[in-house]
Simulated scan of single mutants.
Amino acid sequence: MQRFKNILFVCDDQSAHEMALDRVIWLATANDAAVTLVSTIDSGGASDVSKLFSVIPGLGSQALGEAVVAVHQAKLADRAKMLRDKGIAVDTKLLIGTPFIEIIRHVLRNGHDLVVKGAHRVGGRRFFPGADMHLLRKCPCPVWIINSAAEPRARRILVAVDPDPNDAARDGLNHALMEMATSLARSDGAKLDVMTVWRLQEEATLRHGIADISDQDINRLVAKAQASSKERLQSLVSGFSAFEDIMRVLHIKGVAGDVIPEHVAAEGIDTIVMGTLTRTGVAGFFIGNTAETVLNHVSCSVLTAKASGFQSPVGAGSQEVSI
């Protein structure tokens, strides 16, 4: 997967970093990429860790803060050694503040082209909690949340696309998703499902007797919507004919928020590749509507990318400690 050269690996104790380690090693080796390991201290927005302990009587808050930082630094150093022993160039940073904000700020300041993170540890819950969802929504570069026992190599990949040549941002994003998904599938020896879920908006409403529209007319509208969507999908995948041996193209009528999780469960999908636009009113797999619904109902790994020109709402300042 010859795409990523400057990888940020989140390996704090709140993330299942053990599942992501092999994938990071494989990516860095395959791409001759540099890796920055980061751990985070959630200080509630404060820049000084000692403030976390200022309300505890009889204890030195400054000493406690220094002890916490030292433990985080030691863990980072141990994890970095595992990568350095593989010949990978590694830097380490300890980020202090609100974790997802500091991670995004580090990306903005240092030009990382991929964030890899083990799924956030949440007892009793299989799906993506707020901590990971914030990254998926707001990080400007691709984010890969690892939550699959199949890592470091995927076996069944699903790429969710909704091509539209009349929308430059969406069209470019769908091509980028296909490039990532096909490259990953080929390098991992995985099977790839390319899926578009389509429907005629408000079909059920149009079929209500009050609408006074004939079934023949409605069926004609449905057929037109189906043909138009299928033509756009075929146009997109035609540029990736070299992957026909590992690729299955699926054009399914329904509600994407229902169809995608059902397909993931039924087919044993371990990795979803999907786009995030954060734009209201755009049909498809975009954070803020369908994509968020999907992510709340799957537990596999997810690799997401933003449309060109996306600007994160998070600023670039941060509080960090070098090791």
Results as ranks from 00 to 15, higher is better:
A211T: 14
L277T: 04
L95Q: 01
L206G: 05
H251K: 07
A242V: 09
A160G: 13
F128W: 08
I323P: 07
G130F: 03
S308E: 07
A16T: 14
F100I: 04
D188N: 11
M82W: 04
V321A: 12
I210Y: 11
D48T: 14
I252F: 06
G123M: 06
V68M: 14
A265T: 10
D215Q: 11
R186E: 13
W144S: 04
N6I: 05
M178Q: 04
P142S: 04
A80G: 15
M247W: 00
P163G: 06
A119H: 11
F128I: 10
F243C: 06
E203M: 15
E66C: 09
G239I: 03
L200R: 11
R79L: 15
H251R: 07
V302S: 02
D12K: 11
V194W: 00
R199Y: 12
K230N: 10
N219R: 08
A33E: 05
D212S: 15
I246D: 00
G123T: 12
A46N: 09
R3S: 07
Q234M: 09
H208K: 15
A181D: 02
G254C: 08
V90H: 00
G87Q: 07
A89V: 13
D13I: 10
P165N: 11
V294A: 14
V55Y: 14
G60K: 13
S312H: 09
R220A: 15
A223R: 13
Q311F: 05
V302I: 11
H17M: 06
S183I: 04
A283P: 03
